[in-house]
């Protein structure tokens, strides 16, 4: 198990390097630092000196990938790529356009982000699995049919509609919770409850439908027939036998959903004015702050790799056949 984890973490290094190369290629090869300086400073009146100054302040005045003038290792290290990406591996993300330290900003914003993402994820998984099991229990009945129809309808509705509709109805018309904002401490739940609720509801359609097919596929397996031959009731078959076997595909699907979770929280946080990583990213995108976007890509990749690893480990809990080596 430990060897497996270490190996996976080692394997993460080339992947993160690849991630950095891609963002680097996007940011510096498609557009030269000069282009970016011009854009940041306003396209019209830019003197070459201003560009040079802008580049020097941000460390973009070095060669991109290889520094032919330097000797030894410095050929590689005295470059924009190394300076910008290698430091991210040790948690140094540099400074944003407004001069603030990105790493500290990320640290501050991690809390609110997790406060939305985790409850949404867990509650969402619970609700969809329950709903899916119910549909599977009443399979091939009218209830099942209309449940599936409802799911398809729900997944055909834009996520933006859930947010805008929910905000309008619950906050504006009924005035149950504040429309947006965030408060520290215990008061935070008043701000969190709506985004979490909306996050869960918007995921019900696709989640339920997917898990239902997982369960229905499990139900056709031989071991279910054996359980029936033992005289076990349908409910016990679903909860004891099918649910546990269905956990593997469910876990896999959940990991696939993690990048989606990230995307969901982007939108959610900016709509609800929650000072998390998502709104940070959106602001960075809108103000075209490359340093932040680059850091967020890196963080996102790290999160994804960690999530993958966690899934692999959780497999061993739900399925005794899986041994990590």
């Amino acid at each position: 198990m430990l060897a497996y984890i270490v190996r996976r973490l080692l394997y993460a290094l080339p992947i993160l390097l690849g991630v950095n190369l891609i963002t680097f290629a996007l940011f510096f090869v498609v557009n030269t630092p000069d282009d970016m300086a011009r854009m940041q400073l306003g396209v019209k009146r830019v003197t070459p000196e201003a560009i040079q100054k802008w580049k020097a302040e941000r460390g973009y005045d070095k060669p991109l990938l290889l520094n032919a003038e330097a000797g030894g290792l410095a050929v590689l290290t005295e470059t924009v790529f190394f300076q910008k990406s290698a430091r991210m591996f040790v948690g140094d993300f540099g400074r944003a356009e407004d001069g603030r330290d990105i790493a500290r900003e990320i640290g501050n914003r991690m809390g609110p982000s997790l406060a939305i993402a985790l409850p949404t994820f867990i509650l969402g998984l619970f609700v969809t699995v329950t709903f899916a099991l119910t549909l599977a229990f009443f399979r091939a009945s009218a209830f099942d049919f209309w449940g599936v129809v409802l799911c398809v309808a729900m997944m055909s509705i834009s996520g933006l509609f859930y947010i805008i509709g929910g905000q309008y109805l619950i906050s504006k018309v009924w005035r149950l919770v504040p429309i947006s904002g965030y408060g520290g401490g215990l008061e935070a739940w008043r701000f969190l409850i709506l985004p979490v609720l909306i996050g869960v509801v918007s995921g019900i359609g696709s989640g339920t439908r997917w898990y239902r097919t997982v369960f229905l596929e499990e139900i056709t397996k031989d071991y279910v027939r054996t359980a029936r031959a033992k005289g076990v009731s349908e409910a016990a078959i679903l909860f004891r036998h099918v649910l546990k076997n269905g956990m593997t595909p469910i876990l896999t699907q959940s990991v696939v959903a993690i990048p989606g979770l990230f995307m969901g929280s982007l939108i959610m946080e900016s709509f609800f004015g929650i000072p998390g990583l998502g709104s940070y990213t959106i602001e960075a995108i809108q103000s075209q702050d490359f340093a932040i976007v680059r850091s967020m890509v890196f963080i996102g990749a790290v999160l994804y790799i960690v999530a993958l690893l966690l899934t692999d480990i959780s497999y061993t809990i739900v399925d005794p056949r899986i041994r990590l080596r």
Partner: peptide, 28 residues
């Protein structure tokens, strides 16, 4: 159906062709 369950596995039992798939893989 509920009464039939008392018969199944009780007074009449069944074994199947594929022992590999007929047992639940995740239960002891």
């Amino acid at each position: 159906e509920a009464d039939m369950r008392a018969w199944r596995g009780g007074r009449m039992a069944m074994i199947f062709q594929e022992p590999a798939t007929s047992l639940n893989p995740v239960l002891t």
